[in-house]
Computed example of a mutant assay.
Amino acid sequence: MPSVLAVLSGKAKAYTRPKTFSAIDKRMLTGGIEVNELGLVGDEVGDPRVHGGKDKAVHCYPSEHYEYWKTAIGGKSVLNTPGAFGENLHTTGLTEQTVCLGDQYQIGSVVFEVSQGRQPCWKLNDRFDVKDMALHVQNTRRTGWYFRVLKPGELKAGDAIALRERPYPDWNLYRICRTLYERDVPLTELEQLKALPLPESWARLAERKYSNALNKNNDDFDLSARTDGPARY
């Protein structure tokens, strides 16, 4: 059964570029951890405009991806322990190909719902010292995902991740990301995607992608503000 290998929390600190903050550098926690509707009690975010909130309460990242990244980007020391991607839950037994939008899982006494995949930003570039890391994460669909909290409670490392409901079994996160970011996606696929209960950020992307397809406009979206970030100096 899928399970939680590590639970992690972090404090917001000044980050790598002027006037930026991040809580990506998280530390493993032991014992029972309280979870409320905004996530792990005591966990912080560096930029509340785009991180945190009920739809991004808890970030999960599969341990299975770590070996891929060690090969793809070299022996980065940050990959030697859980938390390299700033995740709250470092998991095993689940990936973007097996997790679907709207899935409900119980971990400990907490009930979660899968709200969306991560939309990787420039902070990963600086975290790993890889110029295009955010795009690499997005293009390989190794994004991890966010949970919203349906029932607060307590969880800990070692807890099983039990699937309770799966309302959209045809829409795993890999498929959704592929539909949002690949070129030449069939209009029918976009229509189906738009009909799903997407969070606001994904709904906007889906609407833009659908509008472009309807008008036979295959121009890529400019995602550089998210993937490249602000000036370094």
Score class of each variant (00 low, 15 high):
L94Y: 15
A225N: 10
F85G: 02
G102E: 07
T71E: 12
S63M: 05
E207A: 14
L193W: 01
N88S: 04
W69I: 01
G31R: 13
R178G: 08
K13A: 14
V4R: 04
F221N: 12
L124G: 09
E207W: 10
K54D: 12
E96C: 03
Y146T: 10
A57D: 12
E87A: 06
K11E: 15
R142K: 14
K19Y: 15
K216G: 09
D25W: 02
I176D: 04
S3T: 13
V110D: 06
Y168Q: 05
P230F: 00
A162C: 06
N218V: 13
N217K: 02
K151A: 14
P120C: 00
F221K: 11
T140V: 07
Y61T: 09
G83E: 03
V185Q: 08
A231H: 10
D129W: 08
W69D: 06
K131E: 15
R166N: 08
W122K: 03
T91H: 02
V99R: 06
N212K: 02
E67F: 05
L173Y: 05
D126H: 12
F128P: 00
L150A: 04
P167H: 14
K76C: 00
P167K: 15
K54M: 13
R204I: 12
L101S: 00
L163Y: 05
G46F: 06
Q192N: 10
G32E: 15
R208P: 04
C60V: 04
G158A: 11
S109K: 10
D228E: 13
V137T: 08
L155E: 09
R204V: 04
D55P: 00
Y168P: 00
E64N: 09
G52S: 11
A157Q: 07
D159F: 13
Q119N: 13
S63I: 05
G52C: 09
A134P: 11
E189Q: 07
P62F: 04
N139G: 15
D159S: 08
Y61I: 08
V185T: 14
A84I: 06
A157C: 07
G39F: 13
L89W: 03
F85S: 00
T143D: 05
V7Q: 08
K54T: 11
L190G: 05
G42N: 13
S115F: 06
R226F: 13
V50T: 15
R148K: 15
R118Q: 11
S22Y: 00
P2G: 07
R118A: 08
V111Y: 03
G39T: 02
D228H: 13
A57G: 11
L101Q: 04
G52W: 05
R226N: 09
P2W: 14
P48L: 10
K216M: 09
I176P: 11
N215Y: 08
Q116W: 06
D47W: 02
V78E: 11
